[in-house]
Design a binder for these strands. Structure first.
Lengths: 132, 132
DNA sequence: TATAAACCTATTGACATAGTAGGCAAATGC
DNA sequence: GCATTTGCCTACTATGTCAATAGGTTTATA
């Protein structure tokens, strides 16, 4: 299940992509348009800045803007940044200690395949595809 | 993310499918083979019984068996029974109050499409496909 | 009637989610 | 230079879910 962090992040990115390129957009405006608490969005944009997807500028006339051309973002990189690795079961997490049953587990290939399907889905979608 | 309930349920179903049809298998045996606490499995089989995927018989010589032929189960129905509706975002849950932004939300179609992809994935897989 | 099995209710610790609150720092315009 | 506007930072919290564990009751068989 995709949490609000991932969903809201996508909406913020879309909101920024729809503005004039090169213009800093105050978070307050985004929050109002998207009807999401500005306070909560602060947490989200912080992650987006840290992940180098957007950049912020303080002070009057400041705000946020995309780091790259809007055509250059995939949905996958945005979701994965916010939600962490797109992995369907704990056994396949990179930090998971190797399951002793991995060799004989009959269900593991299923989860692997599902991860591939989901990964391909998200990385084949571009941000601008959603602008329609 | 698929929880242990869904993953373990699938392994229980597989374990039962690999035994002789028409034979009651004690949960103790399944638990030992699968290396999962029997106590925890009780919770899981309870749901499987309630969902009419397996049936139990008490007393000596009792245990659990599949309700139908093993070829007749899809992975989807097992996972969905345990995890609840396979839905990627809260907005698309059947019990969710209709989001007032649904009409103009640019991201909703994405989540809808993802749900379809995941649904199709799970329901196209049969339990016996995993026995190999 | 002993035994082996399913079945039932309750409880718990750990963690994640979805926020809220309050203040500090930086840049701009007058 | 100073007020204003903006981003940035740390902390806190309520709620809920997950992954079990614990202990007992009922049911059926040999």
């Amino acid at each position: 299940m995709i949490s609000t962090k991932g969903r809201y992040a996508l909406r913020v990115m879309l909101d920024l992509a729809e503005r004039e390129p090169g213009e800093y957009i105050p978070l307050k405006d985004v929050a109002e348009r998207q009807e999401i608490s500005k306070k909560y969005l602060e947490i989200i944009v912080k992650d987006l800045v840290k992940g180098k997807l957007i950049k912020g500028s303080s002070g009057k006339g400041g705000g946020y803007m995309l780091c790259r051309k809007k055509e250059d973002y995939t949905v996958g990189e945005i979701i994965e940044l916010m939600e962490g690795p797109l992995v369907s079961v704990a056994c396949l997490q990179s930090d998971a200690q190797q399951c002793p049953r991995a060799g004989k587990c009959k269900t593991l290939p299923l989860w692997s395949e599902l991860d591939t399907v989901i990964h391909d889905f998200f990385y084949s979608k571009k941000l601008v595809d959603l602008i329609k």
